[in-house]
Structures are given as C-alpha cells and as structure tokens.
Design a protein around this nucleic acid. Structure first.
Lengths: 346, 346
DNA sequence: TTGTATGCGTTATCAC
DNA sequence: GTGATAACGCATACAA
C-alpha cells in the first residue's frame, strides 16, 4: 500500500493556521509569532512532514539538487570527490546527481545544458578535464547557472573555481629528485590537451632547470592517465639504454604501471630506479613498493567547491569569494624513491 | 542573463495546437494526427524544448530520478556499479542520485525513506551490505517504492533482486586450492554480520570438505573488507608457525593487504604462500603479483538491477521478472597462486 | 483526433 | 503577524 506522505495542507489544517504560515515556518521567516511557530513545528514533527521538493522547485525554481559533471577514468579520484561533495550536501540539505560525459563529444555542452535544465539543478560542480573547457563554462554562465570548477590553473573568477597548484607541486618533486642526485630523469606526461598535464610538466621542467637539469625529448612519453598507458610508456622508457635513474609520472595510476613493468623486467625499485606519481590516491600507499607522490587534497577541494557553490545559491557572490579557492598539494615520500646509487657519466 | 527555457505553452502556441496535444506528442500517444505530430515535433526541435521534470513529476508523481543507496568502503566497486547503472539510466532518460548512508545507524531506515520522499525518487537500487537489511526492504515495500537489491543470497522476490552466487564461487576457489595440493589453508573473512561474508565462508568450507580438508579455527580471521584490516589479519596469520600454505581473503582489498605483509616479511608469493581474493576489481590485476580471484560481474549486475527497476516503474512486475536475477561469478587465475611446494606433515 | 478544465504541493503577491 | 489567492509547468479526466 502506498503511504501518501503528508503535505503542507495537512500541517496547516492540524495546526489551525493557513498554509502560508506553515510555509513561513519551514523557511525560517522572522515574522511568525512564537506560539504559532511552536505549534506548527510540533505538528510537522508529529507528521514527519518534509516539503515536496518538486512542488517547491516548481514554485521557487529551486531543486536542492547539485550536479557533478566529469569524464575521468580514475575511480579512486571520483570516489574521493563524491565523498567530499556529499558530506557538505547532506549537511546542507542537497542531493547529488552524478553525470559522466564524454570530453571529446561534439555535443558535450548541449548535453550538459540539457542535463541541468531537465533536472533543474541548482548548480553543478565540474571536474577536470571537462572543467578546462571554456566553451562549457561560458554556456553555463550564459544560462545563468551557478557552477564551480576544479582545476589546476586559475582560469576563472574566484567564485567559480577551486584550484590546486600542480605546477609548484611538480617543481617540488623536481627539487626532491635533484637533491637525491638524479640527473637522467624521465617523465610520463598526461594528455597534452589537458591543462593539468601541461602544468605538471612545466612545473617539473622548471624545477629541474633550477638545478641545471634538462628533460631530454626521448625521455618524455605521453600517456592518458590510465594504468594501461602507464605500462606502455614504461615499456618504452625502460627499453632505452642507458636507463634513466628516475621516472616521474603524471599520476599514480601510470606510476603503478611503471612499477609493474619494472618488476617484470627485474629492475629493482628504488635501488636501480626511482619512481614517483601524482595524486596520492589510495593506490599510492598500497602498491608495492609504496609510491612517493604528490598529495592532492581532493576531498577538501570537493568540500570547498560544494560550499562555494551553495554560497552563491543561497547567499551571494561575495560570500562565495570568501571560501578558499586554492589548495596546495604536498610531497609525500614513501618507498619508491631513493638516492641515485651509481652515477655513471652519460 | 538567465535564459528562461521554453514551456509546453510556448510549443502549443507556436504549433497552433492545445497543450494537451503537445503533451500527447511528448508522451508518444497513438492518437495524434501525423501532420499535427510532425508540426509539433518541428517546433519542439526549434525551441530545443524539453519538459520540466519537476512540473511533470508534480502532476504525475514521477521524477525520472533513481537513487543509489550504499555503505561500502570499496571505491572500485562503487565506481563499477555507478557506471553500470548510469549506462542504463542515460539510455532510458533517468538520472541517478547517490546516497551513502551508515549501515549501523539506528535511523538508517528513516533516513532512506526521507531521502526517497523528499526527492520523490521513482525507485532505488540498494547495495550490500545495506541491501541485506530486511527492515529497509520492508519499509520500502510498505512505502510502495520500487526497489532492487544487489545481494549474495536470494532473499527477496525476483523483481526485487539481482544476486551473485558467491557460495558456489567460493567453493570453486576451494576446489582450485585443493587441486594445487594445499591442505593447510587460512581464511580471512568479512564481517560475520554480512550475508556476503557468511556465504563465502560457508561455500569455501563446503568446497574444502569435499576434499577432506577442514578450516582450523586458528586459521580464520575476521576483517572488515578494508585493506587495513587485511594487513592486520595477515600479520596475525603470518606470525603463526608453521605458516599456512595458502590464504583466501573475502575480497581483493584484504588480499592486497596480505600481499603487502608477505612482502614485508620476505615471504615469497606464490612460491611459499598462495593468496587469493574475491571480486576481481581493478586492484586485483594491478597488484604485484597479480591476484588470483573470483570475478564478480558487478557492472552487469548493476545494469540488470537498473533495467529491472525501470521495468517495474514503466511496465509491470511480470516484465521485471523476465530480467535475469542471478549471475555467476567465475574463477580467475593469475600469479598469486601456485602448487604447494614442499608439503611437510604437520 | 483534439481541446477544456482541474489538480499536483509549494512559494510569492498582496491585502488585512 | 497572518491569510486568501494566484502562479509554477505539466498530466489527465472528461468533453467535443
């Protein structure tokens, strides 16, 4: 049997007031008499009443629904983001609608707009690399829809963005490698069409150059951030002679691929080869040997983005500006890196 | 500027028909003249019109929103499920609202009901171990809400369930171990309050007993399906003397923990110790050595559950019954298991 | 085959 | 401080 849930009318009737008054109570209006408020709240509790969000949305064009738009193969990253977003959502009374999409699709922008319009989302959080698409951001702005992007570069106003400084972090990794004595270093980049990829590569190069080290062209491979391409790139890199003494991968997944190949080829890590990743997702600490990497505070970024989002929805842009828009990734040293053992002049 | 999206009234006006007719076209009614239909569809396309789901929901008590309820620490599992569900959702015009919850919470049932009522979800898919809670299932049934549970045991009608036969699969693993010559086998179970845990343990025991092998009490440890507890259990198991020659863990995460500890203790895998997991999530094939495990077709289960769900929403129970309610996990042999090397009489 | 009128549960506009 | 009443956009009895 279908239990029809109670409505604002039931509450109004039982409390002996008009539904307008109940509405006031629900929305915390100031202009309600104390005795009236208490009485209404009592009935609400008794009935376990909660407002129908559809009706509410129809009347006020609010849905209490947030969207998450992404095209990312990394399950661990996505999980981290979702948990961060959901913590804030549930605390503030929003629900989360997930929406994977295809970065390269020609209809991406229209797809996302339809998604938002159909479900009348109050706002969307966009994850990299989709977040780097200016066409999407502009469409969102034109449509007057609140949005927040997670990115590696500050490509938008503070109210629309939460960025991690990947460039500096990669430079820190370079410094660390240099101080371990590595000179012949290889790099597995992400897709060059992604800003997160170029930022990390640039930062790494910059950091190395401060120590007079250059990244040779033949020591740079491009993967697509998956474990599989990490393996491919590693195979290619580790078939070169002489071997590089260290490999820095654009993310942990690919670094894990390097570990796998090195193991297959009998190349001892970190004795013969140092390997580092980027992200510090769950994988990094669980792989053998545990991965030296850059810890990106993904969950925190997700929380900031969600908070910021709800600020612009419920308060105003100024409040949203207050929420931090930048986080700093940090170096985490584990077992996969060590001082270069024998440094033969090349 | 906020682009107010067009409504059914706009379409009706421009097409020169009543909105009732437009409604018919939208919902694919048979009784609409061909010329009228074409005209209306043309306008719809021009306006890029799509019906407001809130208004539609208010009028017809449908939201085109599906919910996913879970309390599971395994990001890889969740990702797999979400992808499976979303493939069907997007194809059939539904959106997915994710809703993590706490299995042990006293207010779990009420929380879930509120979630469903607030957002007027058309149905929910429930993941283990929450799916094993009869109290929730009954509440859902009482509320008249369509639901489908993913489980390891057929604890509900066919229209409400998609089950994987974990018991048989675990028995198969036992057979495999026995045929490799293992006699002294250890088992790391999941929480005994979960049916998925007891099913796998029972199946494993049953399978072993067919070969006259018993699981000794001191060789059974209980973890909570996380990597961390896998490590704890492994430490305890691998400090015993003599060592077991094989360890079967309730899932891949914990098996990965065993691999880690064995590596730290210098116990060669699979030479000295065979290790196997359950699930075959991404981790299993990426860990070193790659894990022998039971492949559970998670994505497929998610697709079946979603299809079944939408069947009961849009068609009827009979249609839902047709959708397969059972899948068979299969053994996947990789590098972490081998014939027992030296079999000393204990 | 097509149109009219009403209701879904809430918020918002006004008056009292 | 409170209450009628009109939207909001759509679906659906009921008529024509």
């Amino acid at each position: 049997m279908i239990q029809k849930s109670s409505t604002i009318n039931d509450v109004a009737r039982l409390a002996g007031v008009s539904k307008r008054t109940v509405s006031r109570v629900i929305n915390g209006s100031m202009s309600v008499g104390d005795s009236t408020r208490v009485r209404v709240e009592k009935i609400i509790a008794e009935l376990n009443y909660s407002p129908n969000t559809q009706a509410r949305g129809l009347a006020s064009s609010r849905s209490y629904l947030l969207g998450l738009i992404y095209d990312n193969p990394d399950a661990l990253y996505l999980d981290d983001v979702q948990r961060g977003v959901l913590e804030i959502c549930s605390r503030l009374g929003y629900e989360l609608v997930v929406h994977p999409c295809r970065y390269r699709s020609e209809t991406l922008v229209q797809d996302c707009l339809n998604f938002i319009n159909r479900s009348k989302l109050d706002g969307v959080i966009v994850l990299p690399p989709v977040s780097e698409l200016e066409s999407l951001a502009e469409a969102l702005k034109d449509a007057g829809r609140p949005y927040v992007r997670l990115t590696s570069v500050a490509i938008d106003e503070a109210k629309h963005i939460v960025v991690s400084d990947d460039r500096s972090a990669a430079a820190e990794m370079a410094r660390y490698f240099a101080q371990l004595g590595h000179q012949d270093i290889a790099f597995i980049s992400g897709p060059q069409r992604y800003k997160s990829s170029t930022e990390r590569m640039e930062g790494f190069k910059l950091g190395l150059s401060a120590y007079g080290i250059a990244l040779k062209a033949e020591r740079i491979m491009e993967g697509n951030n998956t474990y599989e391409t990490g393996i491919e790139c590693a195979r290619s890199l580790l078939s070169q002679s002489p071997l590089p003494t260290a490999i820095f991968a654009n993310n942990d997944q690919m670094a894990a691929g390097v570990l796998k190949v090195a193991h297959q080829m009998g190349i001892a890590i970190p004795e013969l080869l140092s390997v580092a990743g980027f992200d510090d997702n769950l994988l990094a600490s669980r792989v053998i040997p545990a991965l030296t990497t850059i810890r990106r505070p993904v969950r925190q970024m997700a929380q900031l983005a969600t908070t910021k989002m709800i600020m612009v929805i419920e308060q105003n842009d100024k409040a949203a500006q207050q929420v931090a828009a930048k986080v700093a990734p940090t170096l985490v040293v584990r077992e996969s890196t060590a001082k270069v053992s024998v440094s033969l002049p090349s």
